[in-house]
């Protein structure tokens, strides 16, 4: 469904006198494949280029090299209406739930924004739709009139998820969706995402640095390091035994379950 082909990306500063170098590349020749109804984990430490890849897939940042093919169509080559139609199928949930919502809008307006952009609904239909979406993510329809400062982080992330599923997209890019939440809400949100995946048949590109979260949700995992994919596996559990230093650094970061398992921090 989604094909990322040899994508390279470099953050350009506007200073024309600053020489360009390959060193400043955030993504280097990245290729990925994602089938429908599947969850692909993108694992890596910060600075590995995961989020940049997410933005490239979302159509927010044009790659310097390479292509993003969604159902065979090049996201960046197609213009106008076709591009809008492809875009509709790819939605997003960002890490920072607080600044992912406009503080001046109500929950119903936030969730209704994609619907207003793509579908001609009457005010009543829109209210019914947003109410149903709120219930689908575990809030009540009455929460629609509240503003973001009346919600907790976990609830806000549910609103962000509701906005992402509003258009019934085929792919949702989850950019660290649980990293700003506490452990309890992390597992609740992961559960919700797993439910939605099976009930809506949506695919996820799940960007995270948390190997346990990736294990909980993903069918396949790609490990990134410094702009490159260093490992790709259909069996996420095999990562625990991996010898690669990048993967080791991620598995060793998991907190011990018992004090006796503490590693010395020498």
């Amino acid at each position: 469904m989604l094909k990322v082909q040899n994508v390279s990306y470099r953050y350009d500063s506007w200073n024309w006198w600053r020489p360009r170098s390959e060193e400043s590349s955030v993504l280097r020749d990245v290729s990925l494949d994602l089938e429908g109804g599947c969850c692909l984990g993108l694992l890596g430490t910060s600075g590995a280029g995961k989020s940049t890849l997410g933005k490239v897939v979302l159509g927010l940042q044009r790659p310097n090299k390479g292509q993003i093919l969604f159902e065979g169509q090049d996201l960046y080559a197609s213009g106008g209406q076709l591009r809008q139609r492809i875009r509709r199928e790819i939605q997003v949930v960002f890490q920072d739930c607080y600044s992912s919502v406009n503080p001046l809008m109500t929950a119903a307006q936030i969730i209704g924004e994609p619907l207003r952009n793509y579908e001609r609904l009457s005010a009543g239909e829109l209210r019914r739709c947003t109410g149903a979406l709120l219930e689908k993510v575990g809030l009540s329809a009455g929460d629609g009139s509240k503003t973001p400062d009346e919600f907790s982080g976990g609830q806000l992330q549910r609103i962000n998820i509701a906005r992402a599923i509003a258009l019934r997209p085929k792919l949702i890019v989850l950019d660290e969706p649980v990293s700003s939440l506490d452990r309890v809400h992390q597992s609740l949100i992961l559960e919700l995402l797993a439910d939605l995946k099976s009930s809506l048949g949506v695919s996820y590109l799940f960007i995270t640095h948390d190997i346990q979260a990736a294990m909980a949700l993903c069918d396949r995992v790609a490990v990134m390091d410094r702009g490159e994919i260093v490992q790709m596996t259909d069996k996420p559990l095999s990562l625990w035994e991996s010898e690669s230093p990048t993967v080791r650094s991620l598995t060793e970061a998991v907190l011990p379950e018992h004090p006796s398992l503490r590693r010395s921090l020498s």
């Binding site: 939605q91 960002f94 600044s99 992912s100 406009n102 001046l104 924004e113 994609p114 952009n117 906005r163």
Partner: peptide, 26 residues
Amino acid sequence: GRPFIAAARVSGSSSWQIIRRHIIPN
């Protein structure tokens, strides 16, 4: 630079709609 602007773009809002709905009110 705030994510809600990126989210609005992803959900299909045009530049003009983003300015009107998100930037001017803020």
